[in-house]
Design a protein around this nucleic acid. Structure first.
Length: 945
RNA sequence: GGACGUUUAGCUCAGUUGGUUAGAGCGUUCGAUUCACAUUCGAAAGGUCGCAGGUUCGAAUCCUGCAACGUCCACCA
């Protein structure tokens, strides 16, 4: 780092971009980011209490945006603060492979480069190589951007959701959950994204408001009941019509089965009674399509109805829809079916209704509901706990994942902040359905399950779906054999791991195929949130015993700090995984911050062109300014609007701090800042006041950071720095001239307090000042509440009021700021003493030639009246007496209603008896002051005639 | 359809269990430039706290209703 030896060489403006990289390097090389090295650097970290945060791993999909920058800024404040407080801080960095998001991104890049169907053209291996290459370069970007933001993570322990150790954790978790019956493979209706040809979890499906045509019809002319639908093309798959059991219109049909000819396809429809059916909607009868509706599938399950799939994975009609429809898109089929119904006279009504279309979160493609064989985590299933859990359940007791998730937050073992998010969390948990965890994409943790090829051969034609999508693994056209085998207790989990899958299939045996039986791994991959759900403990080494035990003290982590938008995706799933596997919560607090929006309140997006890029702002305004802009003026959980102007405002503040420091450094001069301590500077009113303010602000800021009130803490510090220190104490000190070591103390404390918010500039000045060691490792300042009603403290406020009154009077009378003029003061002895003691300061700050104590203000002088004194400024007879009088009259008039209403309150016995004494006394004091003021004003008016 | 949130100065937002005449930053207006900083300094103007009721000695704050905006959840087929 370029240490500037001569203070005079310090530039007038702080040049962030020329110093930040060197400072970061210095921190990193010191080893202070590594919790195990802290004790070597400072003995106070020996046996210190751990403080751990896992950094929400950014997706390896490109660069970081302002939301990430905000995450780094807030967490770095916490980490630096607690490190300075003496905690053994461990901030775990890492990245997320983000499965589908990354794969889709790379696919689009390759298409841009000219490929038509990259996956088909490259094949699984080569395509994955491309994805990995991209993921690696994303990772490098992410790391360098976190560093640019000043993030003090321990980079030596960087983790990746798709690295080997995380893969072991995923496999272990899968195995445990499978053994406990919580993971199962089932044939169920799932959300299917026809564009990317993969399943989606419920949370990855959005609902978009649209208009749809609701048609009311009969399957054919002879069918007794009319139904309504917006999806006529699915009706080939109907196997029942459901009516409400109380609906008398239809009771006669319930239990009967009719055959109908629906647009050329013979269908068998059973009439069933089900309470779910709303009698008031449409005809009161519901066509049940078990294969293409989760709700209908549930009804079908209750009534034992068959399932007929009429839409395929390509979102086109299957052969089950009949020869005339097979191969049509859903929209084509819908229109054709409606036409045919109309032609046959079966169409009763067409109307337009609002409808929610299910759409993929990524890509916006319409999501189909199809029956498929997939892997699920069963959230409502009872299982035996592997260990004592959350202080409520004993090992071996039964519960459900849902109950664990609920209790973790209900018992406040995890506190969600701000707490209104708890309500949303409970609502989500209570309505949670089984989580479909298998995906038909290539990038991710492959499901750790192997199938017997031999058994597959025997089951040709009923192969599982993934194979047909996978050009490279046609041989992997495997089986539903697995699930049968899995039901055999002796098969159990032995097929899970590549090293341990059975060489001999218990079903086929060697003889059937005359040799070795090849086993093939399930080609599907896991939902990316499966691996990120384990992030707090998989990053600490689980399930590798040695490393996990070494890091055990960091878990539960202290706080999970992340954007409010991923509370369900991530926060909830971490609670699920962790309470299940460890019996404890993943983090004590979950602090959620709001989204960073553009200045008009819109989401930032590349397509809108309204993004503000951290990488452009940092060189332009400095990292510290960017960090402040993301923290100040925000409150927990609330979205924030960000503009470049705001960042610029905070750049101005960093420059203010720079110049404050530059001035103080010039006062310190050559003094050795690390040598103490002769006698203190004389205890003036200002000095005592300032040192009390410093302690008071320190205490308050400390408490606020602990309570996650970063904005409030930062604002208090800013007001203190800019207002109390720069505007007042510094100006006063130019006259009172404190000793260099007192200056050094003030500068040191100021830098320490600001360090968590503005690490770069504070460290830089710390080094310039030649303070000992690194700012980032010094002890956090100790504060104190200032003694209430302390005399010097109040004296200073009076003096400040006097100076402001004079300035106001001068400005009001248009007196040139450079001109020194005479002041007359009418006040009691106490005030006179105060003024005497601080004569030089007051004269200088208020630009006064002299101050005289008088019994009355001379006639040609301008006056200002406060409750404690009346002052007069010598205007050398230029004053407009009438204007002066009317100004005073106005002031009197505005005071009178206040006095009247306050007196009324104080005479009200209800008030004086019920309100606290402090409030009554305070009001009385204010009233007395106002009365004194009005009296003085009136006297002055009389003296002016 | 359900839930949650927001509504305070021209703009962005504070306002901590109800308590004295509601605050800050930016912007605006007026004035200032050798002396740490014009990325600055001094001063000023600007608000019936979304609307309507209620509770209370006292409401921006608590309760009820309404409105506007926003977010999340949800397949009345």
């Amino acid at each position: 780092m370029a240490i500037i030896m001569d203070m005079k060489d310090l530039p007038k403006a702080y040049e962030a971009s020329s110093v930040e990289a060197d400072i970061y390097k210095k921190w990193e090389e010191s080893g202070a980011f590594d919790p195990d090295k802290l004790a070597d650097l400072d003995s106070r970290y020996k046996d210190a209490e751990p403080y751990c945060i896992v950094f929400p791993p950014p997706n390896r999909t490109g660069n970081l945006h302002m939301g990430h920058a905000k995450t780094v800024a807030i967490q770095d404040i916490l980490i630096r603060f607690y490190r300075m407080l003496g905690r053994k801080t461990y901030w775990v960095p890492g990245t997320d492979h983000a499965a589908i998001a990354t794969q889709v991104k790379v696919e689009q890049l390759l298409i841009k480069q000219g490929m038509k169907d990259p996956r088909r053209e490259l094949g699984r291996e080569k395509f994955l190589d491309k994805v990995k290459e991209f993921a690696q370069s994303s990772r490098d970007n992410i790391v360098s951007q976190c560093k640019a933001m000043g993030g003090s993570m321990d980079w030596k322990r960087e983790k990746y959701t798709l690295d080997e150790q995380r893969n072991r954790a995923v496999n272990q978790m899968f195995k445990m959950m499978y053994e406990d019956g919580l993971i199962e493979r089932g044939f169920r209706v799932v959300n299917w994204d026809p564009r990317f040809k993969t399943t989606l979890s419920d949370d990855e499906v959005l609902h978009k408001e649209t208009q749809a045509e609701l048609v009311t019809f009969k399957y054919d002319k002879d069918f007794p009941i009319a139904i309504s639908t917006t999806r006529a093309e699915t009706k080939f798959g109907d196997t029942a019509v459901a009516v409400n059991p109380d609906d008398e219109r239809y009771t006669q049909y319930v239990g009967q089965t009719f055959t109908a000819d629906y647009c050329g396809k013979k269908i068998a429809i059973k009439i069933i009674a089900d309470k779910e059916v709303d009698m008031g909607f449409g005809t009161g009868a519901l066509g049940v399509t078990p294969a293409h509706s989760m709700i209908d599938a549930e009804i079908a399950e209750r009534h034992g109805l068959p399932m007929v799939q009429v839409i395929g994975e390509d979102a086109r009609m299957t052969a089950e829809a009949g020869r005339a429809f097979v191969g049509l898109t859903t929209i084509e089929a819908r229109n054709k079916a409606i036409e045919m119904l109309e032609a046959k006279g079966c169409l009763i009504k067409r109307e337009t209704v609002p409808q929610n279309l299910m759409v993929a979160e990524r890509g916006g493609e319409t999501v189909e509901q199809l029956p498929m064989k997939q892997w699920f985590i069963r959230v409502n299933k009872k299982f035996k706990l592997r260990q004592d859990t959350l202080g409520k359940w004993k090992q071996g007791e039964e519960t459900t994942l849902k109950d664990l998730m609920r209790f973790a937050v209900e018992s406040k073992q995890t506190k969600i902040l701000p707490d209104n998010f708890e309500k949303m969390y409970f609502h989500w948990v209570d309505n949670l359905r089984d989580w479909c965890i298998s995906r038909q994409i290539w990038f991710g943790h492959q499901i750790p399950v192997w199938y017997c090829h031999g058994c597959e051969e025997k089951n040709l034609g009923r192969g599982f779906q993934a194979a047909s999508r996978d050009a490279n693994s046609s041989k992997a056209n495997l089986s539903n054999w697995y699930e049968k085998a899995a039901m055999q207790p002796d098969f159990g989990t032995s097929a899970f791991f590549s090293a341990t899958y059975p060489k001999k299939c218990p079903r086929c045996g060697d003889d059937d195929l005359g040799g070795q039986i090849p086993f093939v791994q399930d080609p599907d991959t896991l939902d990316t949130w499966f691996s990120s759900g384990m992030w707090t403990f998989s990053t600490l080494g689980w399930p590798d015993e040695a490393e996990w035990q070494k890091n055990r003290a960091y878990h539960p982590t202290n706080v999970l700090e992340t954007g409010r938008d991923i509370i369900f995706f991530w926060v909830a799933r971490m609670i699920l995984m962790t309470t299940y596997a460890l019996g404890e919560v993943p983090f004590k607090d979950a602090y959620l911050h709001g989204l960073v929006l553009d200045e008009k309140g819109r989401k930032m997006s590349k397509s809108l062109g309204n993004t503000i890029e951290p990488l452009e702002m940092i060189p332009k305004y400095g990292t510290d300014a960017v960090r402040l802009s993301l923290v100040m003026g925000t409150s927990p959980g609330m979205d924030q609007k960000l503009s470049e102007d705001k960042i610029q405002d905070f750049r101005n503040f960093t420059n203010k701090l720079w110049n404050i420091s530059r001035f103080i450094l010039s006062q310190i001069g050559d003094a050795d800042v690390n040598e103490d301590i002769g006698k203190n500077s004389p205890p003036t009113t200002s000095r005592i006041w300032f040192s009390q303010r410093l302690k008071e602000v320190t205490k308050s800021v400390t408490n606020k950071i602990i309570k996650y009130e970063f904005s409030s803490a930062g604002e208090e510090l800013r007001d203190f720095t800019w207002g109390d220190l720069a505007d007042w104490y510094l100006e006063i000190a130019k006259i009172e001239k404190p000793r260099p070591l007192d200056w050094a103390f003030i500068l040191g404390q100021l830098l320490l307090l600001w360090h968590p918010f503005m690490p770069f500039i504070t460290e830089y000045i710390w080094q310039i000042a030649n303070f000992k060691g690194l700012c980032m490792l010094r002890e956090w300042p100790r504060g104190a509440s200032h003694p209430m009603y302390d005399r010097e403290y109040r004296d200073f406020e009076k003096m400040r009021a006097l100076i402001v009154d004079v300035r106001r009077l001068r400005a009001g009378q248009g007196i040139e700021p450079v001109k020194f003029i005479k002041l007359a003061v009418m006040a009691d002895e106490e005030i006179q003493n105060l003024v005497e003691r601080n004569m030089l300061v007051i004269k200088s700050l208020a630009r006064l030639e002299s101050i005289d104590f008088v019994d009355s203000i001379a006639e040609g002088w301008a006056t200002a009246v406060s409750g404690m004194m009346t002052i007069g400024l010598d205007l050398a007879g230029t004053i407009d007496v009438e204007a002066e009088k009317s100004k005073m009259q106005k002031e009197i008039d505005s005071l009178k209603p206040y006095i009247a209403s306050t007196e009324a309150k104080l005479q009200n016995k209800d008030f004086t008896s019920k309100a606290p004494q402090k409030v009554v006394a305070g009001m009385q004091a204010k009233l007395d002051e106002a009365k004194a003021k009005i009296k003085a004003l009136e006297e002055r008016l009389i003296s002016l005639g």
